[in-house]
Design a binder for these strands. Structure first.
Lengths: 206, 206
DNA sequence: CTAAATATGTGAAAATATTCACATTTCTTA
DNA sequence: TAAGAAATGTGAATATTTTCACATATTTAG
């Protein structure tokens, strides 16, 4: 077991962990590196090499024990325990995410929503607490929110991101059509741009 | 100018193209590899190396001409012209995407929606034509739909994907919580798993 | 119990990708 | 118009990542 995990390996281990959860739900108990590789488009060599960062694993039927392996991955990547999340921007995408059920059973609890439109804040139909955007810093700080999901117009993205960071948020999943920059270290920002995703699919077809 | 573009370069060029569009909207006319790198978290060396797949570029104010550069990238990656898209699964996420405005101005026209619930098909409020899921193959084929965005429950994902592929779809952007496999070559599937995205942010914080 | 079959785990080799260094080009200004 | 400043473009060097090959471990079957 080595210590510093390379970024591509972290990325694949996250994916594999999700896959293992899905397999577990289907009742599977063990799986080989070859099959895991086929399901996730990773070569079996790379699967095994990635797992070499995890310590001893080989357990069941000559294959990997799915539950055990997933536990080890999540412990190693420090993905255990529940994190608090807020959603900023409650338009169509934002409010869909605000009510996305699967987060809770996977370690993410959505506890706050924000929007700059007072009218929308007052009329939105949801079980989550929703507040006007000018309260972001205060409320995020008060509840020690860990992550934010951003779905605001491009023009507002940078400013909102800064307020979230001021409030203490450590990671931002950014659906807004604007690249966010931060000077602060220790903040992770992941951009999801739907047009870009389609472009990438299209480019890979060549 | 070399010929086969490596995958990481394709990925970055897509990102850069989107960034250039945003800069253009802000009125910027030219930009250097260094600034482009800062905005997109790519080293200036890599930016320039990536551009070496594009041919001659250097034009304006000793920097890259934003419009010209973007045109070259999109031509090289064959991202020109409009593609037709359908959305399958019109729950919260699906209907948000169905009505996402930014696709149209960026080369993607959403022309069809599908859902397995007849009731939802009949009551949904949208300008896009919406049909029951059993009509997927026929309608996708008839309109020569290029891409599909999938936002169905995990249990339905694989079957729906197969029907889309049978209908002639060449790429699938998959928001469902299930990995889709296809035996067919020439089909590109891009998975977006929201839990996975948060996991990845979290793991990178370590 | 032993041999055959099948998987893992990992150092070494190969393949890829990134960074560097610097010659070349473009622009500015005096 | 010539020299200085600043950016590109790219072969070579470096670093990273993936693949391979095989020793080791586990399971099954006779």
């Amino acid at each position: 077991m080595k210590s510093k995990i390379p970024r591509p390996t972290v990325c694949r281990l996250c994916m594999v962990s999700r896959l293992l959860e899905k397999l577990h739900l289907q009742g599977r108990e063990s799986i080989s590196s070859t099959e895991l590789g086929k399901l996730s488009d990773i070569s079996p060599y790379t699967v095994r090499k990635d797992f070499s960062f995890l310590g001893d694993l080989k357990v069941l039927n000559r294959c990997y024990d799915i539950v055990f392996l997933n536990n080890i991955i999540r412990r190693r990547l420090q993905l255990e325990g529940e994190k608090l999340v807020c959603v900023v921007g409650l338009g169509r995408i934002g409010s869909a995410i605000l009510n996305y059920d699967s987060f809770l059973s996977h370690g993410y609890k959505i506890v706050l929503g924000f929007d700059s439109s007072i009218n929308r804040v007052e009329t939105i139909k949801t079980d989550i607490s929703v507040y006007p955007a000018y309260e972001i810093e205060e409320r995020v700080h008060f509840l020690s929110i860990d992550f934010a999901i951003l779905a605001v117009p491009a023009s507002a993205a940078q400013e909102v991101a800064q307020r979230l960071i001021n409030g203490g948020v450590k990671g931002i999943l950014n659906f807004s059509q604007s690249i966010i920059k931060t000077e602060v270290d220790g903040i992770v920002i992941q951009n999801i741009d739907l047009v870009n995703e389609l472009d990438f699919i299209r480019a890979r077809l060549n």
